[in-house]
Nucleic acid binder design. Sequence first.
DNA 1: ATAATATACGCAATCGATTGTTGTTTCAAA
DNA 2: TTTGAAACAACAATCGATTGCGTATATTAT
Lengths: 344, 344
Amino acid sequence: MKKKKEVTIYDLAKELNFSPSTISRALNNHKSIGKKTTKKVQKTAEEFGYRPNALAASLRNNTTKTIGIMMSRINRPFQASLITGIEKTARKSNFNVIITQSDDKYENEVKNAKALYDARIGGLIVSLGMETQDTSHFDQYVKQNIPIVFVDRVPESFNSYRVIIDNYAAGYRATKHLIEQGCKRIAHFAGAQHVNVYHLRKKGYLDAINEHGLQVDEELILDLKTLSFEEGKKATKKLLKLENPPDGIFSANDTAAVSAILYAKEKGIKIPQELAIIGFNDDPISRIVEPTLSTVSHPAIKMGEISTKKILEHATRKLDTAVSEITMLDTEVIVRNSSNRNLK
Amino acid sequence: MKKKKEVTIYDLAKELNFSPSTISRALNNHKSIGKKTTKKVQKTAEEFGYRPNALAASLRNNTTKTIGIMMSRINRPFQASLITGIEKTARKSNFNVIITQSDDKYENEVKNAKALYDARIGGLIVSLGMETQDTSHFDQYVKQNIPIVFVDRVPESFNSYRVIIDNYAAGYRATKHLIEQGCKRIAHFAGAQHVNVYHLRKKGYLDAINEHGLQVDEELILDLKTLSFEEGKKATKKLLKLENPPDGIFSANDTAAVSAILYAKEKGIKIPQELAIIGFNDDPISRIVEPTLSTVSHPAIKMGEISTKKILEHATRKLDTAVSEITMLDTEVIVRNSSNRNLK
DNA sequence: ATAATATACGCAATCGATTGTTGTTTCAAA
DNA sequence: TTTGAAACAACAATCGATTGCGTATATTAT
């Protein structure tokens, strides 16, 4: 178990007859070091294969070039893409990315917040879990001036960066689209209403209905806890049994929308003629299911990029955390066959 | 930008009139510290809200409680699930997980290997990129006795842990299944043949064909570089144009298999009656496409768990890296409608 | 009672980079 | 030639935990 020693600034100092301080500053292009010296040091560092020990620097600076991520579950298309965007952007600036997942359990979220804090992350990117209502587990970050970016599922109020999509407009437009296709009784698979994204989508839905001379029917609005495949199926079943069933469904996610398509088809209902359906997220399945699912697309990778940039700016410029900045991205209604009545 | 100081072992030492060494040892349950002392220290640490500074320990020990992950792309179902398994298992042992993705580019893979090395990770879990043939960028880890686990896409020979599925058997069984359904001319969408998993699946396919009295027809074997949707479609087109088209397809992944289903259906070919199809991976889309796609399931999360356990064992017991241990997991042929001719 | 062995704990160096302070050169202007 | 400023570089403390070695006290055996 012999380990080859790494090259340190002390080795370079000895070689060049400078002090370690000078080496350190030269490597960081500090202005108090002469140009020739700086160049010489960097050249030698290169030759010696010097690689800075980030741990030492982190210990000294009490912060790391690491971004922590908190997600509910990473093996879902949206979240995976979010992480992809984060990781790519972070790595360009030599930041590492630590991930955690909460399984949508509040308890895990609190634990993970602590774990990441202990890892001395330089910034945090969070998409809240379903259960989370209280956000005090993030207070410690604020106290230490560690930047937090909430993405997508964000808290109502928290002095931090927030990167979101315009869920209200998205819900409005998706619903409007169904109305334009001639739907008169549009159902809505809503998510848990204490989660902002679902709340806003529903609000958009409601306003669209009202503003187009249609009637909101509470019977057609189903709050699904997790918007899972099973829940979607059950909900569809319930809707179809109604005396006056809907002729359109706006589902707050694709999973439930797909289950609606499959179940309705099974019951011999024609999509989109008898029942037009639109989902949310533009998951890969939406292109595969038949009929292909109309949906609302999320710029997931971009959201990851933007979130990361916020952190990086903050970390680099050592800004103060007393910011509350909201970046709102646009969504796009993607019309596919499950809602397009003008096809044939 | 005032920062509240964290509690350190020095604070505890002062409080309890012990030396920092004693505190450190007591917190680590070192045997050279008395029982009462240990208990007292731990109690006080708890009261004071002491949280160890992992950076300091890492610097001293020259290793971190962090596992590095190298993947080609994390927003794909299999890889995302793999990471899920890794992260969950790691966190239970207070290890963090750093992820990197190469986009299947060799250059990125080399860069990421360096970046993770610089981060002083305690172990590495890798699924090789498509382009990777040379693995010398991992040599530095071996030299430093840092454990490496290759998962799924592993190198032919490398003195390390490898966690894989039995690709040969999987390919054999998938093909055999098609034969049992009455297929006589079975095509194969093979992946890049320098990647072990695809090579083995093809081998299983070939042997199954031969051992069941069928004829291997090179015309029916298509090496798809990336097994993408587009490639799959093109390949299917080519196959269907053949004078003597196939009556079955075994695709080395689900994406290409799904594209085959969609294209064939578009051309009016009946699945599975005229063309039976089986994929690989059990991606979510396989349950959605119509007909639902038969496939081979990968125990992705479990693979992540096992890989992580290997690392943890190694890190905890400080074993030597001179191991070459292969863990082979079983797969399961999942018969759905795209290949089941006995349905109606 | 004394030597021998445990047991319990402290000293101080160490990991590698950073940085406020201080000291020395260098060069130009007076 | 002197003086002042700017440029350059070194000293030494610091971040917090770990650990080899050494010492002091307690326990046991003889």
